[in-house]
């Protein structure tokens, strides 16, 4: 496969990719309480029909499926807001970073302390879709950081610069994030950069744990990049009213010790079922062949038709 193909997160287009092109916001209104993974994607999905946009879903109760810290993001009660909860990370402070942030002038929502009920946040500038959320808990012995990227349906700059900004000592930087309304998906390879104080960490183990119980280990290469293959383990069916494939949560974690302090950083998001598991390639190829066969009579030359394929007029100047 050409190098160009390997650079891109190729097999992830899906029907809801179309939704990325909508200007403005449409709030989700599922027909029944969503799965936690679907709830985490509230900002991505769209409801359909006349009832769409009436309000936000109630937050689902947190469910511990990993020992690593993670952030659970759900649509808030108000338009454009989100409710954020931290799991396995008590007394953390929360920060929301907007995509137009630079190292010199970060654009952030006011820092918030995460209580048991979570925190209600809205995009600080109202611009841009992917924002970075991080929660930090610190003691003299340890620094624990949970991070995720959340998609707000607002037009604005791409998250390329946002991802490269230094946000904590030990970082997991998605390279890249799935394109808007695309997703991490089963069997796909995705790259994550591991940095400490802005420097790539080579030979460092990262661990991927999924809501479905899988555990995958990967090691960073010489430039600090870990390539993770998402396991084929999603079992959920899509939430009613959603036309996206089923999803499950994952957390990717890395640990590091420096100067007598232990650092633990985790990045969590969701990944979706491989759409090929719900599609029939054989049937698709069959109908393709049927269409090709239908066109074959066109390749038969009719009597007296342009046998030499040189029309009158041509070459008779």
């Amino acid at each position: 496969m050409p190098a160009l193909f390997r650079r891109l997160p190729l097999p992830s287009p899906s029907l809801p990719l179309l939704l990325a092109l909508l200007l403005g916001d449409v709030q989700a209104q599922p027909q029944q309480p969503p799965t936690p993974a679907a709830a985490a994607l509230a900002g991505h999905d769209h409801a359909h029909g006349p009832d769409a946009g009436k309000g936000a879903r109630p937050p689902a109760a947190p469910r511990a499926w990993t020992r690593y810290p993670l952030l659970q993001v759900q649509a808030g009660g108000e338009r454009g807001s989100v409710n954020v909860r931290a799991l396995n990370l008590p007394d953390a402070s929360l920060r929301l970073l907007a995509p137009e942030s630079t190292a010199e002038s970060p654009v952030t929502a006011p820092a918030t302390t995460l209580g048991p009920a979570g925190a209600l946040l809205r995009p600080p500038s109202g611009q841009g879709n992917y924002h970075w959320l991080s929660a930090r808990s610190e003691t003299p012995e340890a620094v624990t950081v949970a991070g995720t990227a959340h998609y707000f349906p607002n037009p604005g700059p791409s998250p390329t610069g946002l991802l490269l900004l230094r946000k904590s000592e030990l970082e997991i930087v998605p390279q890249p994030l799935p394109r808007e309304h695309a997703a991490y998906r089963e069997s796909e390879k995705w790259n994550f950069l591991v940095r400490f104080n802005g420097q790539a960490l080579a030979g460092k183990d990262v661990v991927l744990e999924t809501e479905s119980g899988s555990r995958v280990r990967a090691t960073t290469n010489s430039v600090g990049m870990a390539t993770v293959v998402f396991p084929r383990d999603t079992r959920d069916t899509p939430a009613a009213g959603s036309h996206r494939p089923a999803a499950a949560r994952f957390v990717l974690a890395v640990e590091h010790e420096a100067d007598g302090r232990r650092y633990l950083t985790a990045f969590n998001h969701v990944y979706r079922k491989d759409p090929d598991r719900e599609r029939s390639l054989g049937a698709g190829a069959g109908f393709l062949l049927l269409g090709m066969l239908g066109a074959l009579p066109l390749l038969r030359r009719r009597a007296g038709e342009n046998a030499d394929a040189t029309p009158p007029g041509a070459g008779h100047v």
Binding site: P13, P275, D276, L281, L290, G291, G294
Partner: peptide, 30 residues
């Protein structure tokens, strides 16, 4: 490099539209 769109989904409407689209594509390329 993706064959995903060639595959047909199970939902009857999506299957019908996809089958028509695939056949149309086959007809067009030949």
């Amino acid at each position: 490099g993706s064959t995903e769109q060639l595959g047909l989904r199970d939902d009857p409407l999506a299957f019908t539209l996809g089958a028509f689209g695939n056949a149309l594509f086959g007809f067009v390329i030949v």
